Amino acid sequence: MKQALKFLFIFVSVIISAQDLKYSDQEIQKKLDSIKVEGNTLFSYEKASWQAGDLMAKNKKINGNTGIYLTYKVSDTTKTVFLNKDQTSILAEYSFKNNQTKTSKEILVQRELNETEKKLKNIRATIIPQLSNPQYGITVPQGYNLNLVIIPFNENYKVYLIPGTSQSGIIPFGNDYLFISDSKGDIISNQKFHSRLIPTMTSMENGGTVTMSTHSHLRTTPFISATDICTFKLYAPLTKLDEFSVYSPALGIYMKYNYKKDTIEKGEK
Rank of each mutant, 00 (worst) to 15 (best):
L55P: 01
S216K: 10
N258D: 15
A226W: 00
S195P: 01
D182Y: 03
T139S: 12
F232H: 07
V246R: 02
K6A: 15
M56F: 01
L241W: 01
M255V: 06
L251V: 05
S183G: 03
I10W: 08
K256H: 05
T200Q: 14
L241F: 05
I68A: 12
T126E: 15
Y69L: 10
H217K: 09
P249V: 13
Q19H: 06
K2T: 11
L238I: 00
K260P: 00
L234C: 03
E93M: 05
G208L: 10
K58Q: 15
I90A: 08
D54T: 08
I171A: 07
T116P: 00
I15R: 04
Y160E: 11
T239W: 01
L83W: 06
K269W: 07
N175R: 08
L55Q: 12
P237D: 13
T263K: 14
L91M: 15
R111H: 10
I150Q: 02
G208T: 05
L32C: 07
Q100V: 03
K158H: 14
D176H: 03
S213E: 13
K121S: 15
A250G: 01
Y177T: 06
L161I: 02
E155F: 01
G252C: 09
Y23Q: 12
S17A: 15
I187Y: 04
L42T: 08
S225L: 10
F232L: 11
H215W: 07
K119R: 14
D186C: 00
D76I: 05
L5P: 01
K192T: 14
F179P: 00
I68M: 09
D25W: 02
V210A: 08
M56A: 13
N40C: 08
L251W: 05
S24C: 07
